[in-house]
Design a binder for these strands. Structure first.
Length: 858
RNA sequence: GCCCUCGUGGUGAAAUUGGUAGACACAAAGGACUUAAAAUCCUUGCCGCUUGCGGAGUGCCAGUUCGAGUCUGGCCGAGGGCACCA
């Protein structure tokens, strides 16, 4: 469509911007010219990585936001002259494929591969600057072959081991359930009550690195504090001591070991509590009452109700535990539901006066509650009454500990005493548990292990890798699919008949090293080459959702350490130098009169206040709060449709515009629309400028230089700090400025030089539009991120705020860099300020150069 | 319960880190251009009086400071994380 646009008596004839043709053209161009292909070079590198997606079939707005943020950074760094690595891959093992396969009688591999193709096409439509030559997919044998090698490597280093552990077992489906598949204690598909079952499973010894993983958080300066705090809490370091309690009342049991962080409260000792899984429970297994109690315990913790109540219950034994600090102090021993076997020793000593749990327990079973710590402002007769005193204070009723400050003096003094008298030992504990990696699933990386006739572990020899998943045409619901593959399971190793391990690896293993694989994505022999790692790693900027704050990021940190452990030529400790966690994309939710969720497509409104069903435009729709887009609430917006309707640049522009990237952003039609208009407007502006280029202008205009430099300075600062919403705001200002400029006399050279810079800084945000504009206006010129003229920014004129007694009274425009006296002189000559000076004298002056002057009058 | 983060117009948000509060955008109202529409552009936005000016104002209450959205203490509210971790 060709139309005339009249501006201030000048006529321009311009084409409207056809994003479909132009975006397509540039995407093709980038691909054909290998624009984003990366290789090891001498230049300074920048590794920009976004968390790779699970190939569910369609990209969602969360992906659009994630990958747009990453692409802005990658393109910016590239224009700055960095050698950028910006790869993409697929986290393609996992349960959705298996579920989809069962439901629709499909092959998980075919399902996954089709999804990958569909999503790849969508990602390409976004115009991302990705090096597709490095594409990887974790479900491909080409990938997991190396993972199996790494597994065996860690096994050789003693970082992998096997032990019995509990799983959620669905007795109807005869399958193991993931935690999220257990809903209210029942299997999500069968509805059967989930049982705890003990299985032999593989573990990574992540606990070996607890201290290192904790300590090194301090060095991750470019990580959000929030994530670091979460990991710190997760690792859960605590200082305390272990104490051996002597036991009376049994021939077999002589002592029980406890871990405590509060040994100083030993004189408040009231009971000793054991986990039902404690080794000593074997002495009670024949007791029907204990059996019943144990059953009761395994039920609590899964249903919402029991968590809400969280009642403390116990089973009293006939044993007595002796206080190590007072031989005459003997207390009962219980099994209790609140003691966990996998922390400490599965045994705790109870001091109800100074611990909430112990207090609740003691109240229920009428146990002794002694007070051994008083708050600093209370006297020695202080007694714990309706609630325990868990805070700091002073020791009382504790013999040689009396008067000590709690906790800073009391704990260390007690531990010293216990150690000296061989009653206990100082100990640091971590909450972090070893990582269970066995999954009784089909669609995952096979564990490269077999067992001989004696059930001894045999490694699959490297020459026989990969252990390829057998192709199973129809997945049954019973048990672990690989367990039923008789042919596949049988394997001969070194002449010995063996049976393969039928568990597959947790998919978190797949994503714990994929960033290393990207560095040598096409190497067939090794997972990665050290020279590639040395050049590209660590990832300079990792970008993804906050939901991975703990597991994925901690596992990746562990995995890199595990590879480095006992290795001569691998020198990496932390995989991600910078981390950025983006917010979610939200949308209003809608429900019809039957409380059924409605999608935005089904809703109609002409005033933005009252909403109706689109089909009849009558039935009132209830508008709910804006929530993160999810299929279950049906408040999703399909990115493909948006790109189709508005173009990739508009969508990118909008997803960046409204909120800072780390916060949630609201999707709004009007916002999307306005971004679309902006792209169109900018194109018209560009066309007008293009035509001016052909005319002659004379007057110089230094305002353009100043404005351009200031704007780019703002954009630089915003880019470096992930304030991408500010960049969009600056571009709105830029448009307004240049558009206005067209009404004035412009100097040709001046405009040409500055406008080029504007187009270059537009490239990361709207790459198609910017590329097209640059090609039209500057066909043969080099494209490099513009440098700023710093002197120019510190402009010759400053606006200075004049405050009288701390209140703003005026703004004066003066020359920059003036001293205080000169400014004062100007102010005194300013008649509009006279009224403030009447009959008053300047008592004090505060002057901040080029910014503010504050006059204190008396 | 414990830990963390955040409270700025009708809305999403800016604010060079202690120095002009509300940039930019959405929504609303009014206007310009146009035969009309689309597109584009401009103005307004709390209180008081007459244009202009003055006043209040960043959840609430104190404090530090010439000066506080920003720093300190207390309170209120919202969101997130962990959950019997001994």
């Amino acid at each position: 469509m060709r139309q005339a646009i009249k501006i201030n008596l000048k006529e321009f004839f311009v084409e409207r911007y056809n994003f479909k043709i132009i975006e397509n053209k540039w995407q093709k161009y980038w691909l054909e010219n290998n624009n984003f292909k990366s290789s090891v070079q001498k230049d300074k590198k920048f590794y920009c990585l976004e968390m790779f997606p699970y190939p569910s079939g369609k990209i969602h707005m969360g992906h659009v936001r994630n990958y747009t943020i990453g692409d802005v950074l990658a393109r910016y760094k590239s224009l700055q002259g960095y050698n950028v690595l910006h790869p993409m891959g697929w986290d393609s093992f996992g349960m959705p494929a298996e579920n989809a396969a069962r439901q629709n009688n499909l092959n998980p591999k075919t399902w996954t591969e089709e999804n990958i193709q569909a999503m790849k096409k969508q990602l390409k439509q976004l115009g991302l600057s990705i090096d597709w030559d490095r594409e990887i997919s974790t479900c491909s044998p080409e990938y997991y072959k190396h993972q199996q090698k790494l597994f065996l490597n860690l096994y050789d280093k003693g970082l992998v081991y096997r032990k019995e552990s509990y799983v959620n077992w669905d007795p109807i489906d005869k399958t193991v359930l993931a935690n999220e598949q257990v809903v209210d204690g029942k299997g999500w598909r069968s509805g059967a009550i989930v049982e705890r079952k003990k299985l032999n499973q593989w573990f990574f010894k992540i606990s070996h690195f607890s201290e290192e993983l904790l300590k090194n958080l301090d060095e991750l300066n470019h990580w959000p504090d929030k994530v670091k705090t979460m990991q710190k809490n997760w690792i859960g370091k605590s200082y305390g001591c272990e104490i051996d309690f002597k036991i009376e009342g049994s021939d077999q049991i002589k002592s029980i070991k406890c871990y405590t962080t509060r040994p100083d409260t030993l004189f408040g000792f009231s009971f000793l509590a054991l986990s039902v899984d404690h080794p000593l429970s074997k002495f009670y297994e024949d007791n029907p009452e204990f059996k019943k109690f144990k059953e009761n315990c395994s039920k609590t913790g899964t249903t919402e109700e029991s968590i809400a109540q969280a009642e403390k219950i116990g089973f009293k034994t006939n044993l007595l535990a002796i206080n190590p600090l007072d031989k005459d102090d003997k207390v009962p021993v219980y099994f209790a539901n609140f003691v966990l076997m996998d922390y400490g020793f599965g045994a705790v000593f109870g001091c109800p006066g100074h611990d909430q749990r112990d207090f609740d327990f003691a109240k229920k079973y009428n146990l002794k509650i002694s007070t051994v710590v008083k708050p600093s402002d209370k006297d020695d007769n202080y007694v714990v009454d309706t609630e325990p005193h868990t805070g700091p204070g002073i020791m009382i009723n504790s013999k040689f500990l009396n008067g000590l400050k709690v906790p800073e003096q009391s704990i260390s003094k007690t531990i010293n005493y216990l150690e000296k008298n061989n009653l206990g030992k100082r100990k640091t504990n971590y909450r972090l548990k070893d990582w269970g990696i066995s999954r009784q699933r089909y669609w995952g990386c096979p564990i490269p292990i077999a067992y001989d006739e004696n059930n001894e572990v045999i490694k699959i020899p490297e020459k026989d890798l990969p252990v390829v998943l057998p192709n199973i045409e129809k997945l049954g619901t019973d048990g672990n699919p690989l367990d039923n593959e008789k042919k596949w399971k049988a394997v001969t190793i070194n002449g010995k008949k063996c049976t393969r391990e039928t568990d597959t690896l947790d998919t978190f293993v797949d994503s714990s090293w994929y960033f290393l694989r990207f560095c040598s994505a096409n190497n067939k022999d090794v997972p990665f080459k050290n020279e590639d790692i040395n050049y590209w790693m660590p990832v300079d900027q990792y970008i993804g959702g906050i939901e991975h704050a703990i597991l994925h990021l901690l596992y990746s940190r562990f995995f890199v350490r595990a590879i480095e452990h006992k290795s001569d030529n691998f020198n990496l400790k932390e995989p991600f130098k910078g981390l950025f966690t983006q917010g979610m994309v939200c949308h209003q939710t809608y429900k019809d009169k039957n409380n059924k969720w409605l999608s935005p497509d089904e809703v109609y409104s002409d005033n933005g206040k009252d909403f109706f069903k689109k089909e009849n435009r009558k039935e009132i729709v209830k508008v709910g709060p804006s929530e993160s887009m999810s299929k279950s609430k049906r408040n999703t917006i399909d990115p493909e449709k948006m790109i189709e309707a508005y173009g990739a640049d508009s969508v990118r522009f909008f997803i960046l515009s409204d909120s800072p990237p780390e916060k949630d952003v609201q999707w709004s039609d009007s916002g999307m629309n306005s971004s679309f208009k902006y792209i169109q407007k900018f194109w018209l502006l560009n066309e007008k400028i293009h035509q001016i280029f052909k005319k002659e202008k004379v007057k110089s205009n230094s305002e353009i230089d100043l404005f351009t430099n200031q704007s780019i300075n703002k954009i630089n600062i915003a880019l470096e700090n992930f304030r991408y919403n500010v960049i969009i705001a600056v571009f709105h200002e830029i448009y307004a400025f240049f558009n206005k400029l067209l009404n004035e006399e412009i100097n040709f050279d001046n405009l040409k030089e500055n406008y080029k810079k504007i187009l270059i800084v537009l490239m990361p945000v709207a790459p198609h539009l910017a590329s097209e504009c640059i090609k039209n206006l500057y066909p043969d010129e080099q494209i490099k991120w513009p440098l700023i003229d710093k002197k120019l920014i510190q402009s010759k004129k400053s606006n200075i705020v004049v405050q009288i007694n701390g209140k703003k009274r005026s703004i004066i425009s003066i020359e920059s860099n003036l001293d205080e006296d000169s400014v004062l002189k100007i102010i005194k000559n300013d008649s509009s300020l006279d009224k403030y000076f009447a009959e008053k004298k300047i008592f004090k002056t505060i002057y901040i150069k080029d910014r503010i002057i504050n006059l204190i009058l008396k």
